[in-house]
Amino acid sequence: MAKHRIYTMSFASVYPLYLAKAEKKGRTKAEVDQIISWLTGYGQRELEAQLKRQTDFETFFANAPRINPLRAMIKGVVCGVRVEEIEEPTMREIRYLDKLIDELAKGRTMDKILRKTDS
């Protein structure tokens, strides 16, 4: 079975779309980067290196330094599909990121987006 074409798209080609979606709603690049860091473990320098390298989505997530275990708390619908029901791991990671960016654009607070819990 052929891979979905998003796997071979460069993360850098979609990143400006994430920024545009957030900034159109008054959110910032720093918040988008914080979400990506929370989800993947990439620091700012590492993220910028991935963007410069034009890393594809599959490699971007496969090489992520520290996938956040709290991502399983991300629920809801993206592109008509419930993210928690997506079985293919890479697609689920991509849709988790899409969902977090959607939440940012909808005005959700960063604490809620990053699933902060009172421990």
Results as ranks from 00 to 15, higher is better:
53 R>G: 01
43 G>I: 01
20 A>L: 09
58 E>N: 08
47 L>E: 13
48 E>C: 09
83 V>Q: 06
81 V>P: 12
25 K>L: 00
49 A>S: 12
98 D>Y: 04
24 K>Y: 07
75 K>S: 03
72 A>N: 11
48 E>W: 08
52 K>N: 08
105 A>F: 06
118 D>E: 12
81 V>M: 14
95 R>C: 14
75 K>W: 04
104 L>H: 00
115 R>M: 13
22 A>P: 09
50 Q>R: 11
16 P>R: 08
54 Q>R: 03
118 D>V: 04
117 T>C: 10
79 C>F: 11
53 R>I: 02
20 A>D: 13
46 E>A: 10
98 D>S: 02
108 R>A: 02
16 P>I: 05
86 I>V: 14
82 R>Q: 02
62 A>E: 15
1 M>T: 03
45 R>Q: 09
25 K>T: 00
69 P>E: 12
40 T>I: 06
62 A>K: 15
49 A>D: 10
14 V>E: 15
39 L>E: 15
61 F>I: 01
33 D>M: 11
45 R>N: 09
114 L>Y: 03
48 E>F: 08
116 K>M: 08
82 R>V: 00
80 G>I: 09
19 L>Y: 11
119 S>C: 11
81 V>H: 13
49 A>R: 13
69 P>Y: 05
46 E>H: 07
106 K>R: 13
45 R>L: 09
50 Q>W: 07
82 R>I: 00
58 E>A: 08
19 L>T: 06
89 P>F: 01
27 R>I: 01
75 K>H: 10
102 D>N: 00
40 T>Y: 09
24 K>F: 07
34 Q>A: 04
84 E>H: 09
79 C>H: 13
100 L>D: 05
35 I>N: 01
46 E>K: 07
48 E>N: 12
107 G>R: 01
97 L>V: 04
88 E>H: 12
8 T>E: 15
67 I>N: 10
48 E>G: 10
64 A>L: 04
112 K>P: 03
63 N>W: 10
20 A>R: 04
24 K>A: 09
115 R>W: 09
17 L>D: 15
116 K>R: 08
54 Q>T: 00
99 K>L: 08
51 L>G: 02
54 Q>W: 01
48 E>A: 10
26 G>K: 11
103 E>S: 12
24 K>H: 10
59 T>E: 14
95 R>N: 15
61 F>L: 07
43 G>C: 07
76 G>T: 01
15 Y>S: 01
78 V>P: 02
58 E>V: 02
54 Q>M: 03
119 S>P: 13
52 K>F: 08
25 K>N: 00
56 D>G: 13
37 S>T: 11
40 T>D: 15
65 P>M: 03
38 W>P: 01
10 S>I: 01
110 M>T: 00
104 L>P: 00
20 A>H: 06
24 K>W: 07
36 I>H: 05
37 S>A: 14
87 E>Y: 12
83 V>D: 07
70 L>S: 04
90 T>K: 07
69 P>W: 06
61 F>D: 10
54 Q>L: 03
47 L>Y: 11
34 Q>E: 04
